[in-house]
Design a protein around this nucleic acid. Structure first.
Lengths: 177, 177
DNA sequence: TGTTTTATTAACAACATGTCAATAAAATAG
DNA sequence: CTATTTTATTGACATGTTGTTAATAAAACA
């Protein structure tokens, strides 16, 4: 096991506090370009140098925040995300509800390239689609599918989430009918 | 006319040179977070203070680069982007070819929130879709449509554009059939 | 409880930012 | 073509950010 040894409770706490701090700051002020290590350390009530002991830079910290969120999300999801034009939208709505619940921080993280990449892979792995149109089976690439859904999610979050999970679920299903 | 008076050739040249410089730098090194006013001024062979005379900050400069690109793109496009499952993909391919041609700088600019917004609006205005599936007319929102195409374009550029404009056009048409 | 381990810190040098008063150069009227 | 106005350019300054290091403090664990 490569990442095993680290167990010092002090380090664990510091990392957690830095992560909480950066999330708090970004929810208050979503302008990610105004983020500095100083501000994060100040909010975390830890010395700035301590930051560099645990993270390479701000991007590294954000990457870890992203991974935490995905671990949490995946633990709450069933292993597939069925998209078809009948009923069976429960899984899709579970997924969208999670996005909705964490919309503030996710809206910021969606600007982070690493987040996008991870979300794309996750969607690609999760999605199972059943198109009900007549004609030969779709030759649609899963990358195209995943990226189009990702585009919809990004728009949803950017626009302040004025639409319900149910509406978005319906639109997605409608798109791929 | 609000933005009329400015005519001094010196100012025009300086602005142009700064824009060229930032594009050059970003094509060489796409890590937008490493961009500084210093580097841009150095590359432009102009004093750093001159930068602040023409732009508020780096974001402002990028915004103007984005607007230039859209002006150029729209001047070369017909007023609609027809998407249907028959032939008639010329307009879509013209559009995608433009993206392909400028892929290096566009890949970077897609990370810029202002760019996304502008591209979304542009797509929303341009797209005309004709779905050929049976059933009632689609109740699909144009925002959903635009954002799904945007998602596909982002993925296309992020992945180094390993696919041709024709392939992407086919996939888009396939998606909305 | 004592010793080891390692997290924390203040301080430093290098670099980035945004602004200003002084200067230089291009634009344009006569 | 020259004089004068306009405004673009510049070096320099104060302030803020970064990443690192050597010394310190505190938690872990035998």
């Amino acid at each position: 096991m490569p990442t095993q040894k680290k167990q010092d409770p002090r380090a664990i706490r510091s990392k957690r506090v830095f992560k909480e701090a950066v999330v708090d700051i970004l929810i208050e002020n979503p302008d990610i370009s105004k983020l500095t290590v100083q501000k994060i350390a100040q909010r975390a009530e830890l010395n700035r140098a301590t930051f560099y002991l645990h993270f390479v830079d701000i991007n590294d910290l954000l990457k870890q925040v992203v991974y935490d969120i995905f671990d949490d999300l995946l633990s709450k999801m069933s292993p597939t995300l069925q998209i078809d034009n009948l009923n069976n939208q429960e899984q899709l709505i579970t997924f969208l509800d999670y996005i909705y619940k964490h919309r503030k921080i996710l809206a910021v993280l969606f600007e982070h390239p690493g987040f996008n990449k991870k979300m794309h892979m996750t969607l690609k792995d999760l999605i199972v689609i059943q198109r009900k149109s007549e004609g030969a089976d779709s030759t649609l690439s899963m990358d195209i599918l995943a990226s189009s859904i990702l585009g919809i999610l990004m728009w949803w979050l950017r626009n302040g989430v004025h639409f319900s999970s149910e509406y978005i679920a319906n639109q997605i299903v409608e798109l791929y009918r």
